[in-house]
Simulated assay, not measured.
Amino acid sequence: MRNKLVNERKRRNLTQKQVAEALDISLVYVRKIEKGERNPGRETMLKFEKLFGIQDRILFEDLFQVCYDT
């Protein structure tokens, strides 16, 4: 689960439906993004960034982690 994303939405007293409408994406997609079942594309990440005023690297930190596999 993407806790920072969920916590930010709740802090602003927004429902998943309200977020979906504000970003012009489906409610199901918002749910799956929050659960970590789907990864948003760059455009969608920027929509979340603009809505919450928080960098996408913070909201979706799992997608920006660097892993050195040797």
Rank of each mutant, 00 (worst) to 15 (best):
V66N: 06
N7W: 05
I54A: 05
A20L: 14
L23W: 03
L14G: 00
D56A: 15
M45V: 07
E21S: 11
G53M: 14
N7R: 10
G53K: 08
R9I: 06
A20P: 00
Q18W: 02
R57I: 15
T44I: 15
Y29E: 04
G53R: 05
Q55R: 14
R2V: 13
F48V: 05
K10G: 07
Q65G: 00
L27C: 03
L51H: 02
L5T: 01
S26T: 15
K32Y: 07
R31C: 12
V6D: 01
V19C: 13
E43H: 06
E8M: 07
D62P: 02
T44D: 02
R12G: 02
I58P: 01
N7D: 14
V66Q: 03
G36P: 01
N7S: 13
R42S: 13
G36F: 06
S26K: 04
R31I: 07
V6H: 01
G36I: 12
E43F: 09
M45T: 02
F48I: 06
E8I: 13
L63M: 14
K47M: 12
Q16R: 15
K10S: 13
K32T: 03
N13P: 00
P40H: 15
E21M: 12
K35T: 11
D56C: 12
R31L: 05
L5I: 06
I33S: 02
E37F: 14
N13W: 02
K35F: 08
L59V: 07
R42D: 13
Q65A: 10
L27E: 04
K10I: 11
D56Y: 10
R38I: 09
E61R: 14
K4W: 03
L51V: 07
Y29P: 00
V30K: 03
V28W: 03
Y29D: 01
Q18R: 09
L23R: 03
Y68K: 11
G53L: 15
I54R: 05
E21Y: 08
L59S: 05
T44Y: 10
Q18A: 15
E34R: 09
E34A: 13
F48A: 07
R9H: 02
V66R: 05
R57H: 05
I58R: 06
F48D: 03
Q16H: 04
C67T: 11
K4R: 14
K32L: 13
P40M: 15
F60L: 07
N13I: 05
N7H: 11
V28Y: 05
R42N: 11
A22D: 05
Q55W: 01
N3F: 14
V66P: 01
K4D: 09
K35I: 12
E34P: 00
F52V: 07
Y29T: 05
K47N: 02
E8P: 03
T70C: 12
L27M: 08
I54F: 06
L27K: 11
E8G: 00
D69Q: 10
T44A: 09
D56Q: 14
I58F: 08
L23E: 01
D24F: 10
F64L: 10
L14E: 01
L23M: 07
G53S: 07
F64I: 09
F52Y: 15
E8C: 05
F48G: 06
I25D: 01
G36Q: 07
L14T: 00
D24Y: 04
K50I: 10
V19E: 02
E43W: 02
F60N: 03
E61D: 11
D56V: 14
V30M: 04
V28D: 07
T70F: 09
E61Y: 13
Q18E: 15
T44C: 10
